[in-house]
């Protein structure tokens, strides 16, 4: 790792729980990744993803997980991605072909524009979907939009509705007896849980109220 830092003095070490990780300014990104691939043996792009920091500036970050198939080492490179609501980042498809679909996914979910990408279309949601679902301001339940297909719209007269969350998201409580933990709706104020006799027990409080209490 020392040799990498010597060759690229602009890299700043980044907090990491496992493998080494560096922050890289976006204007040096292509040089850096190219040299990592050609001179330092990181020949495999294991994953490419993005992070939405919501109110931080710059708001988005693109993260590259590199792997060396010779030395069996991972390396993580993150680059800030300015521009809200339309962040831009250079495409690494010329370096790793596998980045093609990864970048399409990051574009679909976060709306990051990868300049130089050969075919930047949505990959999971349908073409023409107006939102980017993994952005922080997008609710898990979704928003009401038209059905993707005109025939379906005509035949049913329905739209894509937000999914009823029934007080969700559902998760197990982090406190209380382990034997009694089970996935529960975060907010149970709307359902019959109120009427349960044992609601006063701490173990039976809905996760949200338990959190507020502590």
């Amino acid at each position: 790792m020392k040799t990498i830092l010597e060759a690229h003095p602009y890299l700043i070490e980044r907090e990491s729980a496992d493998w080494p990780a560096f922050n890289c300014p976006q204007d040096r990104l292509m040089d850096c990744l190219q040299s990592l691939q050609e001179e330092h043996g990181f020949d495999f792009l294991a994953d490419l993803t993005a992070i939405d920091h919501f109110d931080a500036q710059p708001r988005f970050e693109v993260v590259y997980q590199l792997f060396s198939t010779e030395r069996h080492e991972y390396l993580r490179i993150a680059t800030p991605c300015g521009g809200d609501p339309d962040p831009v980042c250079p495409s690494v498809v010329p370096l790793w072909k596998t980045a093609n679909w990864h970048e399409r996914e990051a574009y679909d979910m976060f709306g990051i524009e990868f300049s130089g990408h050969p075919d930047l279309r949505r990959i999971l949601m349908w073409d023409g979907y107006p939102y980017h679902p993994l952005r922080k301001e997008f609710p898990l339940a979704g928003k009401e939009v038209e059905f993707p297909d005109e025939g379906l719209r005509e035949a049913t007269g329905k739209t894509v509705l937000p999914a009823p969350m029934m007080g969700g998201p559902f998760h197990a409580s982090q406190t209380g007896s382990m034997a009694k933990r089970e996935p529960r709706a975060d907010d149970e104020s709307w359902n019959e849980a109120r009427d349960r006799a044992d609601i006063q027990d701490e173990e039976n409080l809905p996760p949200r109220e338990l959190r507020d209490k502590h």
């Binding site: 349908w126 059905f147 993707p148 297909d149 025939g151 379906l152 035949a155 049913t156 894509v160």
Partner: peptide
């Protein structure tokens, strides 16, 4: 999924 819904209907 919504993407598949149109296929199911068709």
């Amino acid at each position: 999924t919504y993407k598949m819904a149109q296929v199911v209907r068709r």
